[in-house]
Simulated scan of single mutants.
Amino acid sequence: MPPTVDPAFGDGTTALLLRQAEAGDWAGLRAGLTAVEDPADLTWLLATVSNTGGIEEWIPKAVAEEPDSALPLLLSGARQIAWAWEARTGARSQHVSEEQWKVFGERLDVAEEQLFEVAEREPDWLAPWYFLQISGRGASVGPEAARYRFEAAVRRSPGHLASHKQRLQQLCAKWGGSHEQMHAFARSSMLAAPAGSPLGELVALGHLEHWLDLPSGADHAYLTSPDVLAELHEALARSILHPDYRRPRDWKSAYNTFAMLFAMVGEKWTARPLFEAIDGTVTKSPWQYLNGDDPAEAYTRLRDRCAR
C-alpha cells in the first residue's frame, strides 16, 4: 500500500479524536481532551482536531450547553481560525478575492473574541495564546502585539516548539520580517535550549522558508552551500538525533522535515534512517512544498531515491 498523508501523524489517540470530531461526538472528544495533562500535548491535539471540517456546525451547541467550561469555547476559537484560512485559501494575497478576505476577517474576529475570553477565564492555559499567534498573524495585529502573544505562550510553556514555529512564521519575509530575523531567531532559540530540545527543527524550517523564497537554481545552490549544510547537521544532531531527545506525540513531523531537506540536498545516507523511522507516515507539511496536490507522491519519490 503506497504511503498517504496521515493527519494523525501515526498516533492512535489522535486518530480516535479526529474520528470523534468528524462524527460530532463532543462527549467522546471532550473526554479524550480532558484526559491529556500536558499543555503542549493538548495544544497540539486541539490544533490537529481543529482542521476537521464540520466542527463549526456543532460546537456552538456545546459552548451553549457548557457555559462554565472553557474547553468547548477553546475548540470553537481554534476551529474558527482553521475555517478562516480555508476561506482565504493558500493563494498569494493578490489572488484572494474581496469576498474571501471578508469571510477570512469575520471568522478571525470570532476566533479572537473567543480565545481572549478563554485566556481570561483560564490564565494558566497555553493553548489560547498559541492560537492567538495564528489569528493575530492573519489579522495583521502588528509586531508588538505579535511578540506579546508569543511571549505569553512561552511564559506558560517555555520551549514550546509549536509556539516557536508560529513565531518563526511571523518573522518570515512573507509576513513582514526578513531572512536575517528568521534565521537569528531559529538559531538563538536552538542554542538557548538544552541539547535534545525539539527546537533544533526551527533551523531546518528557517532554511526551508529561505529556499522557498529563491528562484529555481538559486534555491538548490542555497541549500547545498557549506554553511547551510553545516547548520542543518548541527540542528539534526542537537535535536532529534541527540540522546536526550524525547519523542513527543507529533515526533514524525520533525523527522519528515529533516528527511525531506537531506533528501533534497542529495545526502541519502543522512535521510535514509530518517525515512526508515517515519515508516511511511507522511505529514502534509513540508511535502506540500514539493507537490501541493499530492504530498505523498513527493515523499515517496524522495524516499525511493534515498533507498537506492
Rank of each mutant, 00 (worst) to 15 (best):
R121A: 13
S76Q: 12
N291P: 05
R167H: 13
E113L: 12
G53Y: 04
D25Y: 02
I59M: 15
F9Q: 00
R156C: 06
D294L: 04
W287M: 01
S197E: 04
E122R: 11
M260N: 02
R149G: 04
R247W: 06
D11L: 06
R19Q: 15
G292F: 03
T283M: 07
R121N: 10
E22S: 13
I55D: 11
L290R: 00
L236Y: 01
S189R: 14
G217W: 09
V265Q: 12
F262E: 03
E56M: 03
L33T: 01
G280N: 10
D109Q: 14
H207V: 06
L302N: 03
R19A: 13
L42D: 06
A254D: 01
L132V: 02
R137E: 12
F9V: 03
D25K: 07
L108D: 08
A8Q: 11
Q170D: 15
T43Y: 04
G136I: 02
K252T: 10
C172V: 00
D250W: 15
I55T: 09
L75Y: 05
E297N: 02
F185H: 14
S285H: 11
E56G: 13
V36L: 15
R249N: 02
W26T: 03
E113C: 07
E234T: 11
F131A: 09
L46R: 05
G32D: 10
Q181E: 15
G196D: 00
T52D: 11
A84D: 09
G138Y: 06
T300L: 14
A8C: 12
Q181M: 14
E113S: 13
F258D: 01
S178C: 04
Y289C: 00
N51G: 13
A192V: 01
A8D: 13
R107Y: 01
A186E: 13
N291D: 15
E66K: 02
G177D: 11
T283V: 09
P7I: 02
T300G: 00
M260R: 13
G12K: 13
V154N: 06
R137V: 02
R79P: 00
V141D: 09
E151W: 01
Q166V: 00
M190F: 02
H164N: 12
A91T: 04
R19N: 13
T48C: 12
A307L: 07
A21F: 05
P226K: 09
G54M: 06
A119F: 03
F185W: 05
W44E: 10
T34S: 12
P2E: 14
K268W: 05
R79K: 03
A221T: 09
R147F: 08
K61G: 05
D279P: 04
P158F: 06
H160W: 06
S69W: 01
